[in-house]
Design a protein around this nucleic acid. Sequence first.
DNA 1: GATGAATGAGGCTTCATTCAT
DNA 2: CATGAATGAAGCCTCATTCAT
Lengths: 226, 226, 226, 226
Amino acid sequence: MTEPQATGGDGSEAAPKGNPARRALLLDAALRVLDRKNIIDATVDDVVQEAGVARGTFYIYFKDKYDILMALSDRLNEQLFESSHLRLDRHTPPFERIRISLRAVLDAWTQHAGLYRSLTQMALGRADFLELNQRNRAVFLRQIRSDIERSIDRGHAKPINPAVTAKALAAMMDWLCLLWFGLGEEPYPNATGDLDAVADTLARLWYRVVYASDPAQPEAEALAGL
Amino acid sequence: MTEPQATGGDGSEAAPKGNPARRALLLDAALRVLDRKNIIDATVDDVVQEAGVARGTFYIYFKDKYDILMALSDRLNEQLFESSHLRLDRHTPPFERIRISLRAVLDAWTQHAGLYRSLTQMALGRADFLELNQRNRAVFLRQIRSDIERSIDRGHAKPINPAVTAKALAAMMDWLCLLWFGLGEEPYPNATGDLDAVADTLARLWYRVVYASDPAQPEAEALAGL
Amino acid sequence: MTEPQATGGDGSEAAPKGNPARRALLLDAALRVLDRKNIIDATVDDVVQEAGVARGTFYIYFKDKYDILMALSDRLNEQLFESSHLRLDRHTPPFERIRISLRAVLDAWTQHAGLYRSLTQMALGRADFLELNQRNRAVFLRQIRSDIERSIDRGHAKPINPAVTAKALAAMMDWLCLLWFGLGEEPYPNATGDLDAVADTLARLWYRVVYASDPAQPEAEALAGL
Amino acid sequence: MTEPQATGGDGSEAAPKGNPARRALLLDAALRVLDRKNIIDATVDDVVQEAGVARGTFYIYFKDKYDILMALSDRLNEQLFESSHLRLDRHTPPFERIRISLRAVLDAWTQHAGLYRSLTQMALGRADFLELNQRNRAVFLRQIRSDIERSIDRGHAKPINPAVTAKALAAMMDWLCLLWFGLGEEPYPNATGDLDAVADTLARLWYRVVYASDPAQPEAEALAGL
DNA sequence: GATGAATGAGGCTTCATTCAT
DNA sequence: CATGAATGAAGCCTCATTCAT
C-alpha cells in the first residue's frame, strides 16, 4: 500500500543546513498552509508563496513537501517536550491525573489541529509517516498501559488485556480529537467552548475503563480540579 | 482546508449508465487496487489495468477516481445493510450484545480494510467525503448513544454525557480498526489470529464505560454466547 | 493552413443510403444543435441526443460531423433553389431589383444564421469547406458582376473593376449578415425589427456603387415596390 | 481593421511573468504556427515544438492556446499603434484619403493574415473573441461613420443611414481581405501583385458610397497619388 | 545562499469511431 | 437497420525538481 520514502527523521538529526531563520520562516509558512489545506492538496508553491521566498529556496532546506511535514512534526515534538515540565503532583488522585492529562491533550490539539490532520493523512498512505506516528504515540501508549497494569496489580479491577485497552483508549482520543479539531465535528454543539466539560466526561469514561467503577466523589474531585 | 468537490453522492441516484457487469468489474478492480495503494496514489490507469479494460471505459461509469470510491462506499453500505439481518435475540444479555456487535465490526474491517482506509484518507481532505463518513457513522452513533441513555435511565450507572461518550466509543473502534486492519498495527503480536479475544476485551472495556462496572459473570456469559 | 479532409460532397451525389426519414431526423437535429453551438464545439453526441437516436446510428448516415454539415448545406441550397421561383418582373427598376434581392438575402440569413455561421467557421479552417463556400457564392458573384458590367456598358457610370467590385459587395453582405444574424451584432439597436429599413439603406449603398449616383426618385420607387 | 487598443482580454494588465524574450519567442512561434494551421487545429504542442521549448514552459506564459492568441492580438495592436504615426496631410483630398487608408489596410492584412484568420475564426465561436474583435473594429467604425455624417452634413450626398453604411463598408473590407489574404481567394487572378490597383478600385467604390458620385478627376488624382 | 525560469514526467479527460448483439 | 458499450488516440495541464545566474 505504501510508496517510496523520502525523508528520514529517525533520530539521526544532522544539524540543519542553511540559515536557521530562513528555515523557520518556511516551517511557519508551511504550518499556515496546512491550516488551510491538507498535505495532499498543498504544493511546494503554496509554501514558498506563503513564505515570500523563491521556489528554489525551498529545496535548499527541504527535500520535498513531505520532508517539511516531518520537520514540522519534529519541531512540535520538541516544543511539547519542553513545555511538559508541568508535572503532576505525586499525590494527585487518579481521576484528577487522568482529567488533567486529557485536558492537556485537548489543548495540544486545539493548537496544532492542521498539522496533526496532515500527519494523520500521510500516516494513512506512507510507511515512513506511519512509523513517525507510531513513535509519537509510543510514549503515551506505554504510560496508559502501565497505568492500567498498575491498577490491575493493585486489585482495583478485574484483569483486562492492557495492550488492547491502552491502544483502544489512545485511539479513542486521537480520532475523537482529529474529528473535532481537525475536521470540525464537535462532540455536541458548541463543545469547543467548553473543553473542561468534555475533558471531564472523557476522564470519567477513562476512569471507568481502568477501574470498572466511577471515581469516589466525582463531584468533589471535579470541584477541587477547578 | 478542502477544495472544490468533483463527485456528488448527493442522493440523486439515477439509474447507472451502461452494462452493470462492467460497472461491477470496475468496482471490483478498484477495490483490489485500494488494497495495494491508497486512493491518493491510485490512478484511473491502475483501475482500468486491473480491470483489463480501456481507459475511456472508466469514464462511462465514473466521473473520476473519487467517484468510484464513493460508489464503492455505497455498494458496501448496501451489502452491510443486507447482511445485517442477523439480529440479536431480544433476551441477549448486555455484555453479549456488545461483544457480538463489536465482533461484527471487526469482521467488517478485516474484509474491507483497504476501502475504509481510503475513505478515511479522503474524509481528512475533502468535505464531501467527510459528510459521507459522517452519514455512515450516524446510524451506529445513534445506537450507541441510545444504549447509553437507556443504561442511565435505568439507573445502571451514574450519568455521563451520552453525546461525548458515544462519539468517543465510536471513534475508538474506528481508529483502532483502521490502525489494525488498515495499517497493519496489531494491538498485540498475532492479535489478528485471535479476533474473539480482542472482541472480548473491547466488549469488557465498552461495558465498563456504559455500566461503570464489570459484567456480572463475564465467563459464564461468554460461554452462553457461544 | 488546412488539414485532412473527411468529406467529399463535390456534386457526385450518390443516393443517400438508409431510411430517408431517419436521415432527415438527424439533419434537423444537427440544425438545432448548430443554432446553439458552433460546429467546433458541437459533437456527434450532441446531435444524436438531440435526435434521440443511438450513437452508432449517426455513422450509418454520415461520416462525421463535417459530413452532416455538408449535407445541411446541400439541403439548404436545394431549398433555396426551389423557393427562388419568385422571379423579378422584367420591368422592375434597378433600385427595386437590388432592394428586393438584398431583402431576400437578409431573410435567408434570419432563417439559417446558425448554419451559415458554422459553414463560415469551417471555411476558415478547411479547404473543402472553403470550396463549398466559394461554389455557393459563385452564382451570386456572377450575377452581381454582370449587373455591374451591364451598367458600365450602358454608360451609366464611369468604369470600375467589376471583379473587385462584385467581390467586395458580396463580401459586404456576407460579413454584415454573419455579424448581425450569426453573432448578434446589429447594425444599430433593434435593427432586426426593421429589416426593410436596413435593406433600403443597403440597396441605396449598392446602387451608388454600381451607378455612382442616387436612384432617381428613391421614395417613389420604394412606394412602387410595395 | 485593427487599432490602438493596448490591452485586450480583461484589462488587468499585470506585468507579464517571466522572461520577456521567452515570451516573445513563444509569440513568434505561435504566429508561425497560425500561418500554417488555424487555431482550431493548432495545439499547444505545435507551438512549443516550433519554439523549441518544453511543454510546461508554455504554461508559464500563457493559460492556453486561446490566451496566446489574445496576446498576439494585443501585441499586433501595439505594433499597429506605434507604426500609425504616418498621419495624413490635412489638405489631402477625400478620394486620396480613402485610397491611402484602404491601401494601409491591405498592407496590414498581407502581413498578418494568419493571425487575423484565427482571430476571426474564434470570434465566430466564442463570446470573448467576438468582443475583442468588436473592440478592434470600433475605432475604424467610428471614423468611417463620422466621415459619412460629415459628408451628409455638407450636402455632398442625399442622406443614408450612417450606422448601417459604416458597418457595411467595414464588413466589406474585413471579409474581402480575409478571403483574399487569409484564404487565398484573390479578387481576380494575380491581384496580390497589384495591391495599388485594387486599392484604387475599392477607394472609388467607397467614394461612391459616401458621395454618391465619382471623384472629380479620378485619373488625375490617381496619377498624383503614385 | 537565493533566485525563478525551464523542464518534462505523469495523470486526466474527451470524443470520434468501431463492432458485437 | 439500430443500438450503445467499448475503445484508445490525442490533447490538456500541473507540479516537483533542476540549474544557470
